[in-house]
């Protein structure tokens, strides 16, 4: 298997210059604004929590919830790591938005033919051997791009070298089965707007628990229903037969009596 790429974001290094936002807007052809919220015209933003700047972008989960819920497979996890979107397949059900634990996918609410928008880790640039635009633009190396496994090692080393400066956890290594965008922080993650109640298990597993029972259910269920049909049908036939017998007999009786 090909080695998966990822992005490591070190929030202790981010200086809040917003260069990544601009580079991202250039890459997508979005307008540059001062709104630091993910929207259908912003696929990465930098948000401020106290003294800490937190860059936000798609987490590119290892087992992506959005891809698992999409009824037509418009979203999928590439072998290279990025989770990408194909607007031509999309039916616009927005289950991906409902399901994403990080609320990443956004929608073109005011278009007659809307698309879902989200970061694709510059998949096209990666194909050309380049880094994602935001990583390339970052002057502080707060985002670094590389092979996911290497990034985890780098992150652990940074925490190990400076245990006082970091929370002892790399966000994205254990959450919902792992993500390709990972974070280091100097303050507790929930204080930086990260969800604190995520299970370790990949979320798609929660539906697979029940979905995988369907084939068995279909076979056994329909067999049982057919069985019920046969049993009750026979019961009905027997009842009809007995009733006819009884009527014939009683007719015979009256006939005999009359004689």
């Amino acid at each position: 298997m090909k080695k998966q790429s990822g992005i490591l974001v070190d929030t202790t290094l981010c200086v809040g210059c917003m260069s990544c936002e601009e580079a991202c807007a250039d890459r997508w052809g979005f307008p540059k604004t001062d709104v630091h919220e993910l929207t259908c015209e912003k696929n990465t933003v930098v948000q401020q929590y106290g003294d800490t700047y937190v860059p936000r972008l798609c987490m590119h989960c290892e087992d992506p919830t959005c891809a698992s819920v999409c009824p037509v497979g418009a979203l999928h996890k590439t072998a290279e790591g990025p989770v990408v979107y194909d607007a031509d397949k999309c039916i616009g059900c927005r289950y991906c938005m409902q399901a994403c634990p990080f609320q990443i996918p956004k929608y073109q609410w005011n278009k007659a033919n809307p698309k879902v928008t989200k970061c694709d880790m510059c998949f096209d640039r990666q194909q050309e051997g380049k880094q994602p635009a935001c990583v390339e633009a970052c002057p502080a190396q707060a985002r670094i791009f590389g092979c996911r496994d290497d990034l985890i090692e780098i992150a652990r080393k940074r925490v190990g070298d400076n245990p006082g400066g970091y929370v002892h956890h790399v966000f994205g290594t254990t959450e919902i089965g792992g993500t390709s965008t990972m974070y280091l922080a100097g303050v507790d993650f929930p204080k930086l707007g990260f969800p604190s109640n995520l299970p370790k298990r990949a979320l798609p597993q929660y539906t697979m628990d029940i979905m995988e029972k369907i084939p068995d259910y279909f076979v056994w269920g329909s067999t049982m229903m057919a069985g019920f049909w046969w049993l009750t049908n026979r019961k009905k036939k027997v009842a009809e037969y007995e009733r006819d017998m009884k009527r014939d007999r009683s007719q015979d009786d009256t006939h005999e009596n009359n004689q």
Binding site: V69, G73, T207
Partner: peptide, 13 residues
């Protein structure tokens, strides 16, 4: 689309 574009992992599918 669900007729021809399959994702059996999706409940919606």
């Amino acid at each position: 689309h669900p007729l021809v574009m399959w994702n059996p992992h999706s409940v919606m599918f």
